[in-house]
Design a protein around this nucleic acid. Structure first.
Lengths: 245, 245
DNA sequence: AGTACAAAAAATGAATGCAAAATAGCCCCC
DNA sequence: GGGGGCTATTTTGCATTCATTTTTTGTACT
């Protein structure tokens, strides 16, 4: 027996039929959003093949729109297509990660530069608020809260750049990296954490003064340091993570 | 008479069946490459709808792989998909262009920064060669030759960054802009041209000294100025271009 | 003549069908 | 017991088909 969709005609909605309120007119578009999330959230292990038929059943659609979505995700770099062998979740090498971090650094660096031209006092105030909130998390050693706010600060800077193209590119690369769950403890080292806080102070300072070049430099360095920490964490995970299965 | 494929069964190869020696195992991949070129080269007017059926006949394939390619091109930002209304070549607003130029500026700025870390003396020498060659074109007022070399210099810097991810992103954005044929005369103004040459001198100088931050700044400014020139050209094309038809 | 409506034609979006390739079983042999 | 070659099943890639929607064409009416 072929386990197909039950004949109720109602598509089963496994991973949240509509994550939020976004909606796409086309089936292809909706599937693309859902499948992207599905992959980014790590529901398929690194390097594993993407089960076409299974996903079709999960989403309750035929293979055509799913395959279209797969091509797009491949173009985005999330998965890769092997000829006659279907799609696999793209496994990022250490080199890939370094490259991605550097590109992210470049984009944020650019965002900072542009933000200096366009940011309002109100936006700066809002970022300051976030900064102090983050500082609180830092003092309480609350990594999770810290990262949450940290991300919002960086997103605020990107938003202040007033460049939708940049924002989209940033989101794309962020998605590729997100699969790597480095955030949980890449900054374990107390020293790096303190350093990051100091860098954030400098970022705020440069932003207040609208010092474009300076901010650009600081942001790049900040992300560069993040990269180093992340890579170090990946290469010596024995510290606190269980050995690979 | 509708120009369809003759019944020989052999697909007609309109825009070069295989542009160069690249080859994709899948039909989808090949169509993607060919169609992207077709669009980037401006074979379909701005904002015009992408004739699905006609392209299928042109490439000698069915709609499935073509539609897959269309989805990818839409994700890349070259075309846009209107629900139930097919694909249109994306018309870039002035704002879009400004954004694209800024992102390109950011990417080149990043490329310069990274290049300072990795570039070899031989590569710098090669760029110097190109620079002098370009200077020759400048002296002879040979715009076409100038731009040719100019592009190669910028590509060399990107290549020297040793970051394939960056290179791919750069190529993508460059493709989006290429549709806008600004290059032919955006630098008409003698003064801007001279300025650009001076900027290139500064770029080379910073590169020789491997002054990352400085090069990053110069490259950003250089591209920013290019952007300004391009936009100015677009908003007042009466200078030398015939009035819009 | 110009406009409103209606039917026909064409297109789009998605599902299904089909041949080729890859994977998994299976048996035989060593 | 393990490896090699064969067949059967699944999977993949693309073509084709089908239901809608949009666009065009034709016609009548003001």
């Amino acid at each position: 027996m072929k386990s197909t969709i039950p004949d109720t005609g109602v598509p089963i909605a496994l991973p949240a039929a509509n994550g939020g309120d976004r909606q796409e007119a086309s089936l292809h578009g909706e599937i693309l959003l859902r499948l992207r999330d599905y992959v980014v959230e790590g529901n398929i292990p690194d390097g594993a093949r993407v089960p076409e038929r299974q996903l079709c059943e999960m989403f309750g659609i035929s293979r055509t729109p799913l395959r279209e979505a797969l091509k797009v995700l491949a173009a985005e770099g999330l998965i890769e297509l092997l000829p006659n062998r279907g799609a696999r979740v793209r496994q990022l090498s250490q080199r890939d990660l370094e490259e991605l971090f550097d590109v992210m650094a470049g984009l944020e660096s650019l965002a900072g530069r542009l933000a200096c031209e366009a940011i309002t006092d109100a936006e700066i105030t809002a970022i300051e608020q976030l900064h102090y909130e983050m500082y609180g998390h830092y003092l309480h050693r609350d990594m999770h809260g810290y990262f949450q706010i940290n991300q919002r600060i960086h997103e605020s800077i990107v938003a202040a750049a007033r460049n939708e193209t940049l924002k989209a590119a940033y989101a794309n690369f962020a998605g590729r990296i997100r699969r790597v769950r480095y955030s949980a403890n890449f900054a374990r080292k107390r020293q790096r954490w303190a350093e990051a806080m100091r860098e954030h102070e400098a970022i705020l300072d440069a932003l207040r003064r609208r010092a474009a070049s300076e901010l650009s430099d600081i942001l790049f360095q900040h992300l560069r340091n993040k990269r180093t920490a992340a890579i170090e964490h990946l290469t010596e995970p024995q510290a606190d993570a269980p050995a690979s299965p």
